[in-house]
Simulated assay, not measured.
Amino acid sequence: MPSVVPTLDFGSMTQAIQFLMEIDKLKSVQRRTKVLGRQRQENSAEHSWHFAIAALSLAPYAGENVDIQRVIQMALLHDIVEIDAGDVMVYDLAARAAIHDQEIAAAKRLFGLLPEPQREYFTALWQEYEDGESADARFAQVLDRSMPILMNLHNEGQSWVENDIRLEQVLARNTMIADTQPELWKHLLQHLQDAQRKGWLK
């Protein structure tokens, strides 16, 4: 797939602007993780921005077969469905399974606001991320899983402590980081074990 979004048809600019205004709602979707300093909850738009910057910053570790421009696009699109479906904590497996159909419906509605070919392109990119089978999607998912871990490690385990998360849960839920980016996982693992010793993880 191309790494650049298809050129906008100016005859459909109204639809593109309608989409942009609708996704402003992502700024109001609160996550369990708080911003550093813990003054307030992080919102999903902020997480998507941080994820995109992480892709740009960690690009040298991605591997030659990863297109970072596409990873950045996935980062910016991946959580838009939370406007309709809401945010569910990664460790709440039952809740995540329960909202699967809601997320698909949300993608159809939200990306459906766009004109073609953006509608098809955005939908396909979102689905590729969800499937996690391409090299780009796997690296994107590694970063998406890593960001809350990093935030907690630099915020005294805030969301782990508040939600009674165990080290075993973090390890089990993030095996794909170890499989895809073993060096990153080695870095995270030593800090996760230290976090448990500090009482931030059970």
Rank of each mutant, 00 (worst) to 15 (best):
M1K: 05
P2N: 09
V5I: 13
D9I: 06
A16M: 11
A16S: 04
Q18P: 00
L20D: 09
K25N: 06
K27C: 02
K27H: 12
Q30A: 04
K34A: 07
L36S: 09
R38E: 14
R38T: 09
R40F: 12
R40D: 07
N43P: 07
S44F: 12
S44A: 15
E46N: 11
E46Q: 12
H50C: 02
F51T: 06
S57E: 14
A62M: 04
N65Y: 03
D67N: 12
D67Q: 09
Q73R: 06
A75I: 05
A75P: 08
H78Q: 11
I80N: 01
V81I: 07
D84C: 03
V90K: 05
L93E: 15
A95Q: 15
R96W: 10
D101H: 12
D101S: 14
Q102W: 06
A105C: 03
A106Q: 08
A107S: 13
R109W: 00
L110H: 08
G112M: 08
L113S: 02
R119H: 10
A124C: 01
L125K: 01
Q127P: 00
Q127N: 09
E128A: 12
D131N: 14
S134N: 04
L143K: 12
D144K: 08
D144L: 01
M147S: 03
L150G: 03
M151V: 13
S159T: 06
W160F: 10
A172D: 15
A172F: 00
A178L: 08
L184T: 13
H187C: 06
L188F: 14
L189A: 05
D194V: 04
Q196M: 07
